[in-house]
Structure formats: structure tokens, C-alpha cells
């Protein structure tokens, strides 16, 4: 069974990450932006897993597990924030929320 080269995994992960990044920067719907962030998390996870196999080390996989946990926590908190903002105003555009302006 021929192996897929490590570089292909890394580049695939990069493509996914860039799609998530561009999505985060371009979209204005906070829910879509959060999903773009999930894409970036996953791209990172893919890199960890690929290196774990490459080096035959379990640490990378454990790290993916922890990232998944943190991502879950992040998603929960972010969605809670979005819910609060939606409660306050009917129409949510990220650009309209700039109360942290310096």
C-alpha cells in the first residue's frame, strides 16, 4: 500500500487553512465566521496527525485531541456571545460591532 507523501497532507492542510482564513476575513455573518475558524482548527489538526504518523509519535495525536476539546469550548462560548448579540439587535453584522474601538 503506497504511502501518501507527508508534503501532500501539509499542502492540503494549508489550502484548508487558507480557505478558512479568507472566509473569516471576508464574511460578515458571525456564524459563518465561526465555521471558518473551525476549518482552520481542522487544518491544524490535520498537520498534527500527519506529523504524528511521520515521526511515529503519539504526542501529535494527543495534541489533536486537546485541540478538539478546546475548539469545542471555543465554539460554545463564541456561540453564546453570538446569541447575546442577536438578542440585543435583530440584524447582526460583525462590522457593526465595534464597541472595542480604541
Amino acid at each position: 500500500m503506497p504511502q501518501v507523501p507527508l508534503a501532500d497532507y501539509l499542502i492540503l492542510a494549508t489550502v484548508l487553512f487558507v480557505i478558512g482564513l479568507v472566509g473569516f476575513l471576508v464574511r460578515r455573518n458571525p456564524i459563518t465566521m465561526l465555521m471558518a475558524i473551525e476549518l482552520m482548527w481542522n487544518a491544524g489538526n490535520l498537520v498534527f496527525a500527519a506529523f504524528a504518523r511521520n515521526f511515529g509519535d503519539m504526542t501529535g495525536q494527543v495534541f489533536v485531541f486537546i485541540v478538539i476539546t478546546v475548539a469545542a469550548a471555543e465554539a460554545a462560548i463564541s456561540l453564546a456571545i453570538v446569541v447575546m448579540v442577536f438578542r440585543h439587535r435583530e440584524d447582526v453584522d460583525v462590522d457593526d460591532i465595534s464597541v472595542m474601538r480604541g
Partner: peptide
């Protein structure tokens, strides 16, 4: 400086990118 310190999430993100 103010343009950068806009409070706009996406602009901060672009800066990081």
C-alpha cells in the same frame, strides 16, 4: 493609528494575517 484601532474584528484579523 485610529484606522488600525477600529474595533473592527475583521480588520484585526486581516492585520494578523
Amino acid at each position: 493609528a485610529r484606522a488600525w484601532e477600529s474595533g473592527q474584528l475583521r480588520r484585526y484579523g486581516l492585520t494578523i494575517a
